[in-house]
Computed example of a mutant assay.
Amino acid sequence: MGKGAIKFIILIAVLTFVSLGFTSKKEANVLKNNIEIHNTTSKLVTVLPYGEATSEEAPIPYVGNKYLGFKEAVAFKESQGNYFVVNTFGYLGKYQFGRGTLEMIGIYNPQAFLQNPKLQEKAFEANASRNKWILRRDIKRSVGKRMNGILVTESGILAAAHLAGPGSVKKYLRSGGSQGFADAYGSTVRHYMKKFAGYDVSSIKADKKAKA
């Protein structure tokens, strides 16, 4: 074997070793977040692999068509109702909250949040109240209409806002459904509006300053 060939093999070996020793910045941040949670949580934490939290096949248990049924249906879709779960992108708890959303409703300690089911329930209600206030005009204008073959309901709008944020839902509604949104797992505003249609969420009060 010639000297040139030997140098080429050595170069390939070095590059392979270096590439295996690094992860992307995004992967590193997710890993860091999950390690922090595991090290500071006294309860067992399950880390959901990609796609598990939003399985399209799992049937959602029916617990009535009022607020309780609505929130439990959303919870089952997000985490199968597990308070102590973290997905691969660092979303937390039964309702899979991101840290930015938690801060908007007054929660600044995600590790403590993950260990506190009562706080998680308060967080869901506060976030729904805040989203209802932001989308109040769009709810009034859009409920009862059909977009992309889906009947628009208030519960569908609020579920979609939990998934995508109220801004994305507002764009979807005001564009007549032409400006869509899909999360990292492929769940869309349209899918959530269809899946969570028809619940009575009148007990959720619109509140601009809702806190958990």
Score class of each variant (00 low, 15 high):
residue 6 I to V: 12
residue 10 I to K: 11
residue 10 I to W: 02
residue 13 A to D: 02
residue 13 A to R: 09
residue 14 V to H: 03
residue 15 L to N: 12
residue 18 V to H: 06
residue 20 L to E: 09
residue 20 L to K: 11
residue 23 T to P: 01
residue 26 K to C: 00
residue 27 E to N: 11
residue 27 E to Q: 13
residue 28 A to Y: 14
residue 30 V to K: 09
residue 31 L to E: 13
residue 31 L to S: 15
residue 33 N to G: 14
residue 33 N to T: 15
residue 35 I to V: 15
residue 36 E to L: 08
residue 36 E to M: 08
residue 36 E to A: 08
residue 37 I to N: 09
residue 37 I to P: 07
residue 40 T to Q: 14
residue 40 T to D: 11
residue 41 T to W: 04
residue 43 K to E: 02
residue 43 K to I: 00
residue 43 K to D: 00
residue 44 L to S: 10
residue 47 V to H: 07
residue 47 V to Q: 08
residue 48 L to Y: 11
residue 49 P to D: 13
residue 50 Y to G: 01
residue 50 Y to H: 10
residue 51 G to D: 07
residue 52 E to M: 13
residue 52 E to S: 10
residue 54 T to V: 08
residue 55 S to K: 10
residue 56 E to A: 12
residue 56 E to H: 09
residue 57 E to I: 09
residue 61 P to I: 01
residue 62 Y to K: 08
residue 64 G to T: 06
residue 64 G to F: 12
residue 66 K to Y: 05
residue 70 F to N: 00
residue 72 E to S: 08
residue 73 A to E: 07
residue 74 V to S: 05
residue 74 V to Q: 03
residue 74 V to I: 15
residue 77 K to H: 07
residue 78 E to N: 00
residue 83 Y to M: 02
residue 85 V to N: 02
residue 86 V to Y: 05
residue 86 V to D: 05
residue 87 N to R: 07
residue 87 N to H: 10
residue 89 F to C: 04
residue 89 F to N: 10
residue 90 G to T: 13
residue 91 Y to M: 12
residue 93 G to E: 04
residue 93 G to Y: 10
residue 95 Y to K: 14
residue 96 Q to R: 14
residue 97 F to V: 14
residue 101 T to P: 05
residue 103 E to F: 04
residue 103 E to M: 11
residue 103 E to A: 15
residue 104 M to G: 03
residue 105 I to M: 11
residue 107 I to T: 11
residue 107 I to W: 12
residue 113 F to I: 01
residue 113 F to P: 03
residue 116 N to M: 03
residue 116 N to A: 06
residue 117 P to G: 03
residue 119 L to P: 06
residue 121 E to S: 05
residue 123 A to W: 08
residue 124 F to Y: 10
residue 124 F to M: 15
residue 126 A to I: 05
residue 129 S to F: 06
residue 131 N to L: 00
residue 132 K to A: 14
residue 133 W to V: 00
residue 138 D to R: 08
residue 138 D to N: 14
residue 138 D to Q: 15
residue 141 R to T: 09
residue 142 S to A: 15
residue 143 V to T: 14
residue 144 G to W: 09
residue 146 R to Y: 14
residue 147 M to T: 01
residue 152 V to A: 07
residue 154 E to D: 03
residue 156 G to C: 12
residue 156 G to P: 13
residue 157 I to L: 12
residue 161 A to Y: 12
residue 161 A to E: 07
residue 162 H to L: 04
residue 163 L to N: 02
residue 164 A to G: 09
residue 165 G to W: 05
residue 166 P to E: 14
residue 167 G to E: 08
residue 169 V to S: 05
residue 170 K to E: 10
residue 173 L to S: 01
residue 176 G to P: 04
residue 177 G to A: 03
residue 178 S to R: 08
residue 179 Q to S: 03
residue 180 G to M: 01
residue 180 G to R: 00
residue 182 A to S: 13
residue 182 A to G: 07
residue 184 A to L: 04
residue 188 T to I: 03
residue 188 T to W: 00
residue 191 H to P: 00
residue 192 Y to N: 01
residue 193 M to K: 02
residue 193 M to L: 04
residue 194 K to C: 00
residue 196 F to G: 06
residue 197 A to M: 07
residue 198 G to S: 13
residue 198 G to V: 12
residue 203 S to F: 06
residue 203 S to G: 02
residue 204 I to E: 14
residue 205 K to N: 07
residue 207 D to R: 15
residue 208 K to H: 12
residue 209 K to G: 09
